[in-house]
Simulated assay, not measured.
Amino acid sequence: MALRQAWQKAGKVLNGGALVSPGSTFARALSTSSDPLTLEIPVPFKGHKVDPPSSTVETSAAELVDFFRTMFVMRRMEIAADSLYKSKFIRGFCHLYDGQEAVCVGMEAALNDKDCIITAYRDHCTHLGRGGTVLEVFAELMGRKDGCSLGKGGSMHMYNKKGGFYGGNGIVGAQTPLGAGLAFAQKYLKVDGVTLAMYGDGAANQGQLFEAMNISALWDLPVIYVCENNHYGMGTAEWRSAKSPEYYKRGDYVPGLKVDGMDCLAVKQAVKFAKEYSLKNGPMVLEMDTYRYHGHSMSDPGSTYRTRDEISGVRQERDPIERIRKLLLSHEFASVADLKAIEKEAKKEVEDALAKAKESPSPDAPELFSHIYRKSYGAEAYGADRKESTVKLP
């Protein structure tokens, strides 16, 4: 929803509910109907201490087109980030999201601007889903001032407070108690929204997660703990790191659902259900069964602890973009040519954003000291041996 609003602000228009550009070659050919369409989710939900929601979900041609285009933009953006890193335009850490796009896109279909998201360091697409732009992501990755965190956060610290996105956090699992804090603020201020605190299977064994769940349950906080289980915490398979890898049950007294995280519609249905539950009763755990195509980070080839056949098998059988493509074609909401046109336009959007990001300047030197010290304290910064020039902080 936030990404849809960002498109409108960027000069895009809505044609029957689908996102298109003015003068787009595919705007007239696609079915952009918002008429309800009921579909069956192929993989049923599994519930823990709660009856699962219905396996039938309501969607529309417009929404499916929106899903396809948004995920394709995300995929192209991450592929471009891979090339940028290898070309040394991006330094430091870089964790890519390609393969997991259905989680981000499906969540946004069930959320609004009163809801908050906080996640770990695989956060590029989450920023985009929360209303950010491809330009902001690329600029941030390269440390440029047009980045969403003014070029000071990099890959792991995307941020958009206006869009209800609180990062991008680099310490494993530390975002989950922060998510409880956001939910506490929502309840205290009587905001009719929930917080989604996201983490991976690698962080699922962190003690702070269970501490956060405990206080959330005690205080009935409107927080949804979303475990993006891509099955390899860094390079360790889930069965080697967790005695019980059924993460939707790990909340114990907190109810949970296991969800096919490669299916946008299943994610949408699960988040809608969890939001309604959480606003009335307190926390819930969602385990998103998903998969990353790249390694844990760019320093990880991703093929030493799993086979290439495994990766290609998931691409062929479960890829979230291909699932939506098949739905659009089978229901005759789009032709092959229509989808090619969407892909072509999405590629151009990513290429144009990348070109602008490369032209963006680095942050000004004084910006290094902003958002760190409280203003008007008269503090000074020195070099390591105090012989360097002194900088008076604002």
Rank of each mutant, 00 (worst) to 15 (best):
M1A: 15
L3Q: 12
R4Y: 13
Q5M: 14
G16K: 08
A18D: 08
V20G: 05
P22I: 14
F26N: 04
R28A: 14
S31C: 14
P36G: 15
P36M: 11
L37G: 10
L37S: 12
T38A: 12
L39C: 09
P42E: 05
F45R: 08
D51P: 09
P53Y: 11
S55E: 08
A61L: 08
L64Q: 10
L64N: 03
V65K: 02
D66L: 10
M77Y: 07
A80R: 12
Y85S: 00
K88T: 13
I90G: 01
R91C: 11
R91E: 09
D98N: 14
Q100K: 02
G106Y: 03
A110I: 04
I118L: 01
I118F: 02
I118P: 01
T119N: 13
T119H: 06
T119S: 14
H127K: 12
G131A: 03
T133V: 05
V134H: 01
V137K: 00
R144M: 06
C148E: 00
S149V: 07
L150S: 11
K152F: 02
S155G: 04
H157K: 07
M158T: 04
M158F: 10
Y159G: 04
N160E: 03
N160K: 05
K161D: 00
K161Q: 04
G164V: 01
G167M: 09
G168P: 00
G170F: 00
G170P: 03
A174P: 06
A174R: 02
Q175Y: 03
Q175G: 03
A183P: 11
F184Q: 13
K187G: 09
K190M: 14
V194T: 07
M198Y: 10
Y199G: 07
G200P: 08
G200S: 11
G202C: 08
A204T: 03
G207M: 13
L209E: 00
E211A: 07
M213L: 11
L221E: 07
L221K: 12
V223I: 09
Y225S: 04
Y225H: 15
V226K: 05
E228Y: 00
N229F: 03
N230R: 09
N230C: 13
G233R: 01
A237Y: 14
A242W: 00
A242P: 02
K243C: 11
P245M: 05
E246W: 10
E246G: 03
Y247K: 15
G251N: 07
G251Q: 00
Y253P: 09
P255D: 06
K258V: 02
D260T: 03
A266D: 02
A266S: 06
S278H: 06
L279I: 09
N281F: 08
L286C: 10
L286N: 04
E287Y: 11
T290A: 04
Y291I: 05
H296P: 06
S297N: 15
S297V: 05
M298Q: 01
P301C: 02
T304A: 14
R306P: 03
E310P: 14
I311S: 03
E322P: 13
R325N: 06
L327A: 03
H331I: 09
F333N: 00
A341F: 10
I342V: 15
E343Q: 14
E343M: 15
E345G: 08
A346L: 10
K347A: 15
E351M: 12
A355Q: 14
K356S: 10
E359C: 12
D364V: 14
A365T: 04
L368D: 12
F369R: 11
F369G: 09
S370H: 12
H371Y: 10
I372T: 09
A381S: 14
Y382S: 05
S389V: 08
L393H: 02
